[in-house]
Simulated scan of single mutants.
Amino acid sequence: MFLWFAFAVFVACHLAAVGRAKWLYWLSKPAAILALVFITLTQTEAPGSYQWPITIALLLCVVGDLFLMWSRTRIGLGFFSLAHLCCCMAFWSEIGSPIVWWLPALFYAAGTLVYLLMLPNLHKMAWPGLLYTVSGVSMAWIASEVGLEAVTLVSGLASVAACLFLFSAFLFALEQFRGGFSHARSWVLLTYFSAQSLLTASVVVY
């Protein structure tokens, strides 16, 4: 419970520090995700095939966050793409029946449309953006596949987490490459932290 409380405190500090205390902004975001890492390491009975990919994904997100805050967007997106792929591994380990093929078709069609709409604004970010899109869509698809296969608390948390993670990525892209929108940074952060906390919760309740 202490680690969840610490996560909430770090999230609140990070949101409060946006545009104000730079040192707190830099410190609080990785600290929040590291609190979730410790939760996945200490508060679960999930099998290693699920626990470890999620834990590694969270650690990759910490590194990706630091590069994004350091304005090294291409490197940051690379680490987040790797985090998406780790989540894919975790979710894939939960699939035990044949794939429902209309689901990936739906996700990849939507992902392709969004990417093509963003493409004129990406410039040098076109290839990193493509990798980020493919990995993120794959993560959301496989998690949703697990959710369709077996309606459980774990699959529900994982599905919502993955879709929120992808939605946060979409909002981030709008903020970075399409001029942003009202309270963009707050929405990106809220969806991002919500996704990470639900992803962690899926490990805890396994």
Rank of each mutant, 00 (worst) to 15 (best):
L198P: 03
A143Y: 09
H123C: 02
A150I: 08
A140V: 10
A57F: 01
L60T: 03
C86G: 00
C13V: 15
W127N: 00
L199Q: 04
Y206S: 13
V188H: 11
L117M: 13
S194R: 05
I142V: 15
I56P: 02
T40K: 00
Y50R: 00
K124T: 13
R178N: 12
T55H: 01
F79K: 00
T112A: 15
V114Y: 13
Y206H: 14
V62H: 03
P98K: 10
T55P: 03
I75F: 00
S186N: 09
L106S: 15
V160Y: 05
W101R: 14
P120Q: 03
G48S: 12
V100G: 08
I39P: 06
A46R: 07
A169I: 04
F170Y: 14
L130Q: 01
W127Y: 12
A83C: 06
A16P: 00
C88H: 00
F79T: 01
L148D: 09
Y192N: 08
V134M: 12
V137P: 08
A201N: 04
P30F: 07
I75L: 08
G64N: 05
I75W: 01
L119M: 08
C88T: 02
K22I: 15
V160W: 05
A161D: 02
S81W: 00
A8K: 04
A158F: 06
I33H: 03
G156F: 06
V203N: 02
C86Y: 05
K124F: 05
T42Q: 11
T152C: 07
I54E: 04
L117N: 08
E175S: 13
V37N: 03
M1D: 12
